[in-house]
């Protein structure tokens, strides 16, 4: 059963660009432009795209904050914009950079408020809280004021707060941003278990490809308000023809290096950036550069999510629909 149904959804904004005091030009910006996808119950989907691609506009429409300008939307069977309050009880939202916890009060108090605002029956509240406390290791933190928690602890606290009312859909916006490795791992483990055991549908926006590799069976890439890719993660790498970058420092400034199968992306004094296909080994390339140029130092950079997306977009003559 599809929990999220999005059918040709559009959302445009009118932007006023003022160049005079009185005369202003109106321009229509299409933030989301004919988006269509479905998410089945229990799926965990990565939703990625460059800044300004339309990710948060989509999430705002899915939560009912924003009313779409066209198309059809259903979340858990209801129209989000028309039944925002009813939907609020069935979704959980976590913003990585903004906490919904009460800064000056013990962590436990934020959960007590959620119990009352979401009208969670006592037995269910206790069971859910116990589960979150155990899996997220919150036992020692419940009586600590939130302001004294570390970023990782707070993130775990926020996750628990979003799940106490058993939402059927969980939206996560950058849930691992700024966290240390241990917290990241704990958060991912918890999300994986919640998704598996509770069949909670998860929609995750992130800039961290590892989040997606470890959690999501499916990735949707949005750019300029349209889906440019929707499929398993491997497809993302294949479609993007990902490139790695070899950064070389030469003894002196040189004209751009010319080698077969390599694009020289950037030259900055003695430093040059060489792009080559991700599947190809870096060793022969390094040898070739060292043979012909006075090589001093080098490093290899893995593809960033933005670059992968940029390549998909550049490669697609017609955006996939």
């Amino acid at each position: 059963m599809a929990v999220i149904e999005v059918e040709d959804v559009r959302r445009s904004f009118t932007v006023r660009t003022g160049n005079g005091r009185w005369r202003r030009e109106k321009r229509e910006v299409r933030a989301v432009d004919g988006l269509t996808f479905q998410v089945e119950e229990g799926e965990c989907v990565g939703y990625i795209g460059p800044n300004g691609a339309g990710k948060s506009t989509t999430v705002k429409m899915l939560t009912g904050i924003l009313v779409p300008s066209g198309g059809r939307l259903r979340v858990a069977g209801v129209d989000p914009a028309a039944r925002r309050a009813a939907l609020a009880r069935r979704i959980g939202v976590v913003f990585g950079q903004r906490t919904t916890l009460w800064w000056d009060l013990p962590l436990r108090d934020s959960y007590e408020l959620a119990r009352r605002i979401y009208r969670i029956p006592d037995a269910r509240y206790r069971a859910n809280l116990d589960r979150c406390v155990e899996l997220l290791d919150l036992g020692a933190l419940l009586d600590t004021p939130v302001r004294q928690l570390s970023l990782g602890q707070r993130m775990r606290g926020d996750l628990a707060a979003a799940l106490l009312h058993d939402p059927s859909v969980l939206y996560l916006d950058e849930p691992t941003i700024g966290l240390d490795v241990i917290s990241r791992t704990k958060v991912r483990e918890f999300l994986r278990e919640t998704n598996r055991d509770r069949r909670t549908t998860v929609l995750l926006t992130t800039h961290d490809l590892t989040d997606i590799e470890q959690l999501c069976g499916r990735v949707m890439v949005i750019d300029h308000g349209r889906l440019v890719l929707d499929g398993p993660l491997e497809q993302l790498h294949a479609a993007g023809e990902s490139e790695r970058t070899l950064v070389v420092d030469l003894a002196a400034a040189h004209p751009p290096i010319e080698l077969p199968g390599v694009r020289t992306v950037k030259v900055e004094g003695p430093r040059q950036w060489l792009a080559f296909p991700a599947r190809q080994s870096a060793a022969p390339l390094v040898a070739a550069v060292a043979e012909r140029y006075p090589l001093v130092d080098l490093s290899v950079r893995e593809p960033a999510i933005e670059d992968v997306i940029a390549r998909i977009y550049a490669g697609a003559a017609e955006p996939a629909r």
């Binding site: 009912g64 904050i65 925002r84 009880r89 913003f95 979401y118 009208r119």
Partner: peptide, 13 residues
């Protein structure tokens, strides 16, 4: 600050 958005996704007026 985006606080209004947070209020709009809670089941309270």
């Amino acid at each position: 600050s985006g606080a209004l958005d947070t209020m709009l996704i809670r089941p309270a007026p």
